[in-house]
Design a protein around this nucleic acid. Structure first.
Lengths: 325, 325
DNA sequence: CTGTTAGCGCCTTCAC
DNA sequence: GTGAAGGCGCTAACAG
C-alpha cells in the first residue's frame, strides 16, 4: 500500500502532527527532528495525499476553469496565462469546455462545487442571471476573464471594449475611410462584441454598415463576405477577430480588389494568426495571455486575503499598425 | 455550513448508507425511500463532496493531462478531444503545461500522483527513462498521446510517422520534384519529427536536403528560410508543421518565386491554419482531435477494466491536396 | 432492502 | 516544541 503520514511518523519516531508540521511549515519544529522527518520522507518516498489534505483543510488548491472552447486560439492563449500563474501560486486547474451553452455552464459550475475547487475562472459570451445564481449558490470566489458582467456584480478582467471599438473606428476615419463595414458575429452572440459595436457606432454613426456572419468562424464567414464585397462599396473594415479580418481580406481579394489599397482592414485580437498571414493584419491587440494571468492573480489575491484595489480590472489594448491598412 | 450526506439522511429518515446508495446507484433501494431521499436532496440543495468521495473510494474521477503548451493550436485541439471524451465518461481533467522540459515533466507527474488522479494523459516531444521511472513510481495508468515510446512500454495513440514521412516524399516525387527541402525543427527536438524524417530519407535518399529551423516557430523560421530559398535550388518542400509550411510559402514568395509553380509544398498537421491561408496548404492531415479522444477513451477502458485489443493504437493519416502543391 | 461501523489520510485544536 | 484525539464527508463491508 502507499505510504502515509503515519508511516513517516513511525519511521522518524515522532507523531503525525509533527510530520504534518514540517510538511506544511505550519509551526516551528526543532531543527534536528525536522531533519529526521525529512529523511524519513525521502527514505519512504512519501507524497502527501492532496485529497485527504483537501478534505481535512477544506482547501483543494484547485481552480475550476470554465471556457467556451480551448481549441480556439484566443482562448488557448488565455488558458496558458491562467495556468502559468496558477502554477506559480501552487494551484492547479480543472479545465472544462462549455461551448458557451448556458445549461452546460450552470451544470459545470455545480460540478466545480462538488469538486470543492477553491475558486472559479470563468469565461463566456453572455452572462445572465442563471450564472449569477449558480455562483451564489456554490459560494465560491469567481473571477470573470475576458467576460463582462454589465452590472459588475462579479470581479472581472477585461479591456474597455467600447473604447476599443471607437479607437478602431477612429483609426480608419483618420485613414479617410468613408464607408466602413463592421464584420462581426450575430448580434447578441457576445456581449463583448456588442460593446465594441456600440463604441464604433457612437463614433461613426451612419458611416458604417454592420455585417453579421453567424458564429464568427472563418469558413462560415468567407462565402458571406465574398458576396458582400462583390462591389466596391466599402473602403474600410473593422473585424471582430483576426479570423474574421482574414476572411475579409480573402473575400476582398477574391473579388479582385486589393488590401489595403482598395479596402483598409483592422481586426481585433492579435492572435498569432495576425502576423502569419499576408498581408499581416493591423489589429486592436488584446492582451490575451494577461487576461488569463491577471484574472488568475486576482483570484489568488481573493483566496489569500491579500488587498485588492479593483475588482474590475481594465487592461490596456493598443493598435498595432501592419500591412492590412 | 454546507449540507452533508448526514443531513440528507436525517431529513429523509434513513441512514447515510442508503443516501449513498441512491446517489451512486450502488445497490437496489425501495422505490419509495429512494423518492424520499431524492426529495430531501433537492430540498436541501445537497451536492456530494467529491473530495470526501475520493478519499473514501480511492478514485477521484480526475485525469491528469500533461502537455507541452496548450496555446499551440495542435495541442489545444487535442486537449479538446481529451476533455470531450473525459466529460462523456464523467471524468474531469487537471491540465498542466510542461514546456517539454523533462525536469518539470517529472515534477508534474509527482504532482498528479499527490492529486490522486485516476490516470494520466501524457504528451511530450521526447520520452526518456526519467519519465518511465516517474510513471512506475506513481503507479498510475498512463496513455501517451501523439507521443512515441520507442520501446512501446506504455500505451499510446499515434499515427505511423515513418509511413507519413514516406507518403509525403512519395507525393512530391509523383509531382516530379527533384530537389526537396525538408523543413523541420532541430534534430533531437521531437521524436515524432525524427521518425518522419526517417521515412522521408528512406524514400528520397540523397534527393533531399534537411533544413533545421530551431524550435519550429514561424517567426523564428521565416528569416532562416528566406535565406535558404534565395536561389531556385528546390522545387519541393516537406514541412513538419503547418506553421513551417506557411513560413516556407512566405519565404519563397519573398524571393520572387511562386507556390506551387516554382516550388510545391506539403506540410504536416492540418490545423485550421492550413485552410485559412492562401495558397491553402496541401497537408498530411493528422487526426488531432482524435489523438485526444482516442487516447482518453483508451484510458477509460483501462480504468474501467474494459477489454482493449491494442495498447498502441495507430490512427490513420491522409493526404489532403490543396493549392500549395 | 436498510442500518451500523470502520476507516480513507490528513489537519487542527488542545494539552503537555 | 511535540503528542493525542477528534473530525473532514463519504464509501464499503458486514449484519440484520
Amino acid at each position: 500500500m502507499s505510504v502515509t503520514i503515519y508511516d513517516v511518523a513511525r519511521e522518524a519516531n515522532v507523531s503525525m502532527a509533527t510530520v504534518s508540521r514540517v510538511i506544511n511549515g505550519t509551526a516551528v519544529v526543532k531543527e534536528e527532528t525536522k531533519k529526521r522527518v525529512q529523511d524519513a520522507i525521502e527514505r519512504l518516498g512519501y507524497r502527501p495525499n492532496a485529497v485527504a489534505r483537501g478534505l481535512a483543510s477544506k482547501r483543494t488548491r484547485t481552480i475550476g476553469v470554465i471556457v467556451p472552447d480551448v481549441s480556439a486560439a484566443f482562448v488557448a492563449e488565455i488558458v496558458r496565462g491562467i495556468e502559468d500563474i496558477a502554477n506559480m501560486y501552487n494551484y492547479h486547474i480543472i479545465l472544462t469546455n462549455s461551448d458557451a451553452d448556458t445549461h452546460r455552464e450552470v451544470s459545470l459550475i455545480g460540478t466545480m462545487w462538488e469538486k470543492q475547487v477553491d475558486g472559479i475562472l470563468y469565461m463566456t459570451n453572455i452572462l445572465n442571471q442563471e450564472h449569477i445564481t449558480a455562483f451564489e449558490q456554490a459560494e465560491i470566489p469567481v473571477v470573470l476573464c475576458a467576460t463582462e458582467d454589465p452590472e459588475k456584480r462579479i470581479p472581472s478582467v477585461n479591456i474597455d471594449n467600447r473604447k476599443a471599438g471607437s479607437d478602431a473606428a477612429n483609426y480608419l476615419e483618420k485613414k479617410s475611410c468613408q464607408n466602413i463595414a463592421i464584420v462581426s458575429p450575430d448580434i447578441g452572440t457576445s456581449l463583448i462584441a456588442d460593446h465594441r459595436i456600440e463604441g464604433v457606432r457612437k463614433k461613426l454613426g451612419n458611416k458604417c454598415t454592420f455585417i453579421h456572419v453567424g458564429k464568427g468562424k472563418y469558413e462560415q464567414a468567407l462565402p458571406i463576405l465574398r458576396n458582400i464585397f462583390q462591389n466596391k462599396n466599402y473602403d474600410g473594415v473593422i473585424a471582430m477577430s483576426d479570423e474574421l479580418g482574414l476572411a475579409s481580406v480573402h473575400a476582398i481579394h477574391d473579388n479582385g480588389f486589393q488590401v489595403p489599397h482598395d479596402v483598409r482592414i483592422i481586426a481585433f485580437d492579435n492572435t498569432r494568426l495576425a502576423t502569419m498571414v499576408r498581408p499581416e493584419l493591423t489589429v486592436i491587440a488584446q492582451p490575451m495571455y494577461d487576461f488569463g494571468a491577471v484574472s488568475m492573480r486576482l483570484l489568488t489575491k481573493m483566496l489569500l486575503d491579500e488587498p485588492v484595489d479593483t475588482y474590475n480590472v481594465i487592461l490596456q489594448h493598443n493598435i498595432i499598425e501592419r500591412q492590412s491598412s
